[in-house]
Design a binder for these strands. Structure first.
Lengths: 246, 246
DNA sequence: GGAAACGTTCAGCCATGGCTGAGCTACGTT
DNA sequence: AACGTAGCTCAGCCATGGCTGAACGTTTCC
């Protein structure tokens, strides 16, 4: 399914080329597991996967991951129970939960206080952002910037705000996610398929036309002045480029 | 705190500050223990947990916490007895009690001896406020501000009072807690779920609709004039922003 | 014991955002 | 230069989210 679209090679978003951290991904649906692990590996993480709670605990013991991505709904045991076991073996093992967007789930109440959680269906950008945020917190990598800058464009993740030459710009949630994806991948060509896979939820059925639309919206709000930052590579994709070094 | 400034946005106070103090959390219910320790860690405390009186005394001896959060009702020994033991080993060990809200008077008598207490079910904001207040008293951290200010909005925690451009405003307890939470997290987007989890009691079953209502009340009482301070980020949450950087 | 304040829910309205399809423009290939 | 294709933009529809006022129940304080 979706993963086929992003067979590209140079997808590494990593600030670092080497391993950022060791992750354990736990989900019983093979599709989700593959989707996540493939794209996390692309982003520079070392990934081990488990399909149920028993496996999760087992692998966690052996590989001592830096963080666990954990589906709440598992065939054998509750995600919280797994988290409990993990915490037993290591006081501070950070967990990012995956959960259905049910709303009425009262279990979810406790979740939000956990290290973090993402609702299904998610976009890869969302998951990556959470993981990085949690790692930043738990390791005290506080100097990793929460603010991105390209040319006179600035984006603050925490404040969820964007400035162009100092003046605040209002972006819709999707516009924001798209710009964020561009900025994290400054200087890298992104195909429409890649963008679709990362910015839109994995169950989105539509075609690449949306991407064109949203790039258009973004340009209008954020890239009207010279030098232009977002460039079209006909037949290939888009790039956000630092001015100057073009 | 100074070092945080370097990351640009963080308005101090917040989630990402370095270790504020070492806490020992004692409660026999795992849920409460996890709830508290997760959110205290998020707020920058170093946390160790214990499930009963024996463990509590044991850990207190070893780690010498700066403050103990102590459930009054423990399986093996009375919370007051534990507090007694703690005081034996360190004259001035501050204790914040957790107690059921059933108001039997003899318990309250004992509570007067505590530095402070919070009744269950509590909201995280309440607990955090107590802990910070006690730490401020006992170790003279007088530089921790008791008065918060954003634009022409001022809030005094000790006096439990709020002013908008100098004129006092009457807020209900919930309104006050909500505004306090906003002000402590100035510049940070807060989802309705987060707000619900921090401002409302942990056993509150309702949905995020209440948050909308209370934001509405708050705006009416406190944010009628330009420039507006409380902003809605559709589909994301709310932010309280310093004016100017609008 | 009564009145006021407070907290919660709900329903209706309004605004915003997401997506699509169609027409148009720009590109670049031959 | 001309054709075909890719990309851009816009308008419009639909769904969702958010705001507010009113109603109801509960607590608090005289």
């Amino acid at each position: 399914m979706a993963e086929l679209r992003s067979s590209g090679v140079s997808e590494s978003q990593g600030v670092l080329d080497r391993v950022e951290a060791r992750l354990l991904v736990v989900d019983d649906e093979p599709n989700i597991r593959e989707l996540l692990s493939a794209s996390l590996r692309m982003s520079g993480f070392e990934v081990v996967t488990a399909a149920d709670g028993r496996e999760a605990v087992h692998f966690a013991e052996r590989i001592r991951p830096d963080l666990v991505v954990l589906d709440v709904m598992l065939p054998d045991m509750d995600g919280f129970a797994v988290a409990g076991r993990l915490r037993e073996m290591s006081e501070q093992m950070p967990v990012v939960f995956l959960t259905a967007r049910d709303g009425t789930d009262d279990k979810v109440a406790g979740l939000r206080l956990a290290d973090d959680y993402v609702t299904k269906p998610f976009s890869l950008e969302e998951v990556l952002a959470r993981i990085r945020a949690v790692l930043r917190r738990t390791r005290g990598d506080l100097d990793l910037p929460t603010r991105l800058q390209v040319g006179d464009l600035e984006l603050d993740e925490e404040a969820h705000q964007v400035w162009r030459s100092g003046v605040a710009v209002r972006l819709s949630p999707t516009e924001f996610k798209l710009l964020h994806y561009f900025m994290v991948n400054t200087g890298r060509v992104l195909s429409k398929a890649q963008i679709l896979d990362h910015v839109w939820n994995y169950d989105f059925g539509g075609d690449a036309g949306v991407v064109e639309s949203y790039v258009s919206y973004l340009r209008r709000k954020v890239d009207t002045a010279e030098p232009r930052l977002i460039h079209t590579l006909r037949g290939v994709g888009y790039v956000l480029r630092q001015p100057h070094s073009d």
